[in-house]
Amino acid sequence: MTDRKPSPLLGGATEAFVHERASATPRNAVLEAAPAAHGTSTRPPVVASFDRLQSWFAASVTHAGLLSEGVVADGLVSRLDELERVVTRGPRLGALERLGVYHHGYRARLVECLADDYPAVQYALGTDTFEALCHGYIARHPSRSPNLNAYGQHMSAFLVEGASGVDLGTAPLAFLAGLATLEWALVEVLHAAAAPVLSLETLQSTPPDAWPSARLPRADTVRLLRLAYPVNAYFQAWRTDEAPTIPTAAASATVVYRHELTLWRLDLTPAMTALLSALFGGETLGDALAHIEREVHDAEELAEAERSVMIWFREWVAGGVFARIELPDANLEGACP
């Protein structure tokens, strides 16, 4: 598979890079100190139940603005100079600065996670604007899972909905959303189970007269994306250090799939898109082929489709894009052995 150039034009293997989560603490930025005017309370510790204390702590360190505002937001601590009634001053740092390690670490860890999932979006926006986007995302989508593998799943929708009004400069939201869709598809495909897929042998052993009524469902390790910008071309140029600029809008379609341990991105022609979309939508091969004639009006492309459709199928099957072939007669159904 790695020797074969993905057809028709563009795409290529993506060396899958999963950045793992760790038990470490992110490096700090400058910690926020309490204003010098604030004294230190000498009053006894605030009495609070275990869960009340945890609610306050979580609200403080996940507060989207300044920590000094976060610690007084929920009422347990009424004024900043009362903070040391809840957490102590250390040998060298005040209570607010100490708490700042957690406040900084919370967002830094999630930004790191989103940067792992969306490196091309980060490139398109620049590091600072990407970080601002992430801060908006983190505020809108706090994690509710013990796991970060799916944390970034809402990014495309978040962009489509306007990114909570975060100033993203001149990059069109629809382009960024499309790029996020592509990058998230890569994450999903990486984590998808590699179930058995339709093999060439099974395909070739299917009697030709059974073909029109056959169905070819999508394998779990495959995603078909229809996008408003040529996102994959941009992604490919970024991957190969060509410093791409944001393209003008133009419809594109890309299939993303994992074959064994390699992720592939393959741009589709309109004829391929019509055919694969219909098949993945559950239509029979006969009906799916009819979609080509309905949706493609360029005579040259139609002729090319007629010549090459068998080659496309062989390549798609070799790449493992179909789960199985389903025939009306259940006895003829089969996945790979």
């Binding site: 609610s55 979580a58 360190v61 706090p142 994690s143």
Partner: peptide, 17 residues
């Protein structure tokens, strides 16, 4: 440690009183 409350996860190792 604890990592979150009210169904939310901070993904940090937070200190216990």
């Amino acid at each position: 440690c604890w990592t979150g409350i009210a169904g939310r996860n901070t993904h940090d190792l937070l200190p216990i009183p």
